[in-house]
Nucleic acid binder design. Structure first.
Lengths: 227, 227, 227, 227
DNA sequence: GATGAATGAGTTTTCATTCAT
DNA sequence: TATGAATGAAAACTCATTCAT
């Protein structure tokens, strides 16, 4: 996103190349790791630096404070997600198939971005809650998911396969349900495995869990769910 | 947990005598608050004590270390839940009604015990995850919910109102789905409100959200869900 | 020394028998252990109590303070040594044989009373040094060893087997040499073994070390030492 | 150990610049003093720092923990001894003269390095004993003394002045005997003075004690000791 | 831009000792 | 005489941040 690797341009002859950006990016990477593992309060600036080739002073040079570094890590995390999404081309699929694909994609995505999930969990545990999320772009980004769902629902209702009427779930409802189960799967994995012996992310029960979540969502919207 | 052991006298209103149990319980209460607000890493022993009439030394007198206090707080939190549960008498209700009541009770409970939810979230964010939950009693306690669900499912299937067969959800499946949505509602409330403008816990959308969750669970198990 | 075990007298019918003395003695025993392992500064009152059936308050009841308890432990330790000594009947042996016996007895004694040796070492490491040894009885007790040596030396000189004259060692000289080697053997055992691989107290080199020390002392006083 | 690494400039009298080595060395010096006076358990990090121009934080910056600082002090102490030794040129002296010089040098050395003796005493009083001495360099260093003694003994035996045969003392034997008396003189000085009125280190009996120790060692090895 | 040394305020933990019964 | 609870002072250790080069 920021580093300019490889095909790089212009001033390659200046001995200290764009090390600035590289250093900044390296710190950010390390911060995402550190904070996603221990949160804002538990994460240590020293630990961030140790994951890096630079020294502590640079953190303050580039980010000013631990808190601002945390915020930068959070935003960067959201940004990376946006890149991954989008390319599902759900509009070419039947509504119910499209919904299945979306659910599976969401699950896969959070599975591959546990760091992101953890960051959001930490964010929610902070006093005021969600304080560091400022920025309309983040809000806008997340809204796009709702738009996709809205289109999906409209097509499904038009086709008569999705429920309609005042009782039927809205796009935001669907997003809430999907997010709930996707988050819980990754975020509460440890506790759930410890207490009930089920690993929702890896191992033999993984497929069953994915099926379960997909089914739950589909039965919520389908007019005529399969037995 | 409370005082008045056996031979204890009547005058409970006497000036606060030296009372080990009372002191211990007060520290534990304060710890649940503090840790649920800031987590193990963020919580401070000083802050725990400030919520109390005792001094810091007593924390170490009774609990040994900050970590052991945290663990005690976690276990006590689980214990309190058990007390609330159980008294629902679900066996006297029709299966589908019973399931509705159970869902609503779970939602209400977590709503009233945000501290508990937050503690579990913090627990899941810790390195190894769920490390502090050791103790079979906690595991056993949580298992009771699954047993209740199993009975419920059996009755519903016998009555022909709940789905049956290899595709049908198990008791643990149901528990996972219910927990997912109950946890997300309380645990991710801040982020969700910030990003989508919906407050899942209080305010005008509260009822809609409760309906949504109940419907999601019911449609998952009902053979013939209402339109 | 203090406890009154068994053949005990008088008021045996009073239900709480001489528990006072028993408690005091138990604390003293525990204190000797604790302080000989960790010294005055390193020893903890809690640890003393844990080696006992009583509680911490009793330490203060009987001894007033940690320091006074330490002092009591030190004195008691010296007292116990006195009991062991004395019964060697060296006067019935030839002077050189008597000296050999005395050396061996000293070595054996310190080997069996590592706690005592350690207490003395700790005492010497304390700031002022030997501050807690006050009491003429202790001084007198130790002087008895010198008297024994003086008698021994006189007999040996009279018999012409021990060196005489201004160059010859005095009784105190002998005591110093014997004590040096006896103390070092027990007190510096760990370091010496670590650095030179020789265990001076146990194992295959033990006999050699005992021989060495005996020889060193004997050659110092004998007029005509064996080749 | 000292500063002025390589490119360093000339002005050594400039105001105390930021100098890592200097700070580290100052802390180490202070630690040797503090720990030799009070031991690992009794020594306080605050007290170490007070002997210094730096602050407590630096102890942890450079040494990590109190225990590691103690260990560094112990090793540094051993290192300093090595520097003092070696330059005796014993090989140019007659064997018996050389042994006398070595004994006197050892005594003088420990007299001038009471801190070292005390550190070793403390080390021996610690639970496991000599635990902090790890490091082959320390072991190797100490072994050099034995090598010197071995050379000395060989020369003396060849010259017919030192005892030979299975009964004769080994180099390690000699080292043990010398160390015993040198250690006792400094380490048990306080107790010995208190109990027997003899100050082995200073005062009128000093010379007598040095003579005594020298004689004891010499008579152990000489074939034909003087009357 | 980059770097290692330095720092002060805070945080957990320990420990001898006293209180109330 | 015995006991468990309580406590304040001090100790070890941590951490975000800044200084000097």
């Amino acid at each position: 996103m920021t580093t300019d690797q490889g095909d790089g341009p212009a001033d390659d002859d200046a001995p200290p190349r764009r090390d600035a950006e590289r250093t900044r990016a390296a710190i950010l990477d390390a911060a995402i790791e550190e904070f996603s593992e221990r949160g804002l309060l538990g994460g240590r600036v020293d630990a961030v630096v140790e994951r890096t080739a630079t020294v502590k002073r640079m953190v303050y040079y580039y980010f000013g404070s631990k808190e601002r570094l945390y915020q930068a890590a959070l935003i960067e995390s959201y940004r990376r997600i946006r890149q991954t999404e989008g390319a599902l081309h759900l509009e070419t699929l039947d509504p119910d198939q499209a919904l299945r694909v979306l659910v599976r994609a969401t699950l896969a995505h959070q599975e591959n971005n546990a760091a992101f999930v953890r960051l959001v969990m930490f964010e929610n545990t902070l006093a005021g809650g969600a304080i560091h999320l400022m920025g309309d772009d983040v809000r806008e980004l997340n809204h796009s998911v709702v738009l996709i769902l809205e289109d999906l629902l409209a097509r499904g209702r038009a086709a008569g396969v999705f429920r309609d009427g005042p009782e039927a779930p809205t796009a935001l409802d669907l997003h809430q349900v999907i997010s709930s189960m996707a988050f819980f799967r990754v975020g509460n994995r440890a506790t759930f495995r410890e207490l009930f012996g089920r690993d929702m992310v890896e191992g033999p029960e993984r497929d069953h869990v994915l099926e379960l979540i997909e089914t739950t969502v589909l039965r919520l919207v389908l007019v005529d769910p399969p037995a």
